[in-house]
């Protein structure tokens, strides 16, 4: 258990951020070796599957290929450090709920089953202590927002690989000052 679980998240972040050297508390948070900054290997696989549900591949790449997992992983040790617990708890919740509902992992479900599960989550219909206080809805909204940021935001943060969403929207990018257009 992480030490911050004893305090409310907000109170903790407040203390950690405002007190000098507070960030060192996070240094020993992660355990086994992982290719990722925050996620474990299996969490990252689950994130990839979630990302492809939020932004599915079609004629244009999906969330997984565009780097949604990388974006979120990167933010979780940066501006989104305050959401670390939420992701750890939420991803574990999805894993546990899928075990009970389908005797299978989320990634192993077929696409429409995955969609159905996420619709339950979005509507706050998952049951069990894991999701007390509408945490299913809260967590769904959080990773949905973060996935959209990754896919549609600036590629400098590790998502939107090759500016793929800008291409999809037929937006020239990057604009070159003075060259793309100059009127008046």
């Amino acid at each position: 258990m992480n030490p911050q679980n004893k305090l409310s998240r907000r109170r903790f972040v407040q203390m950690a951020v405002l007190s000098a050297g507070g960030l060192s508390v996070f240094a020993r948070c992660t355990k086994a070796y992982s290719d990722w900054r925050f996620f474990t290997g299996s969490e990252a696989k689950l994130m990839d599957a979630l990302a492809d549900q939020i932004i599915p591949p079609d004629d244009w790449p999906g969330g997984k290929e565009s780097g949604v997992t990388n974006f979120i992983d990167k933010q979780l040790i940066g501006p989104y450090i305050r959401f670390q617990d939420t992701y750890r708890k939420g991803l574990n919740g999805i894993r546990e709920s899928c075990k009970v509902l389908y005797q299978n992992s989320f990634e192993s479900l077929d696409f429409d089953e995955q969609t159905h599960f996420l619709e339950l989550m979005e509507d706050g219909k998952l049951t069990g202590d894991l999701w007390a206080g509408n945490f299913d809805r809260t967590f769904f909204k959080l990773f949905r927002d973060h996935s959209m940021q990754a896919y549609y935001g600036s590629s400098r943060h590790g998502g939107n690989k090759d500016n793929i969403s800008y291409k999809m929207l037929k937006l020239d990018y990057p604009l070159i000052i003075g060259q793309n257009r100059y009127q008046n």
Partner: peptide, 10 residues
């Protein structure tokens, strides 16, 4: 979110 959302965006 999902397919419909992405198509709408485009």
């Amino acid at each position: 979110w999902g397919k419909e959302h992405k198509i709408f965006q485009r």
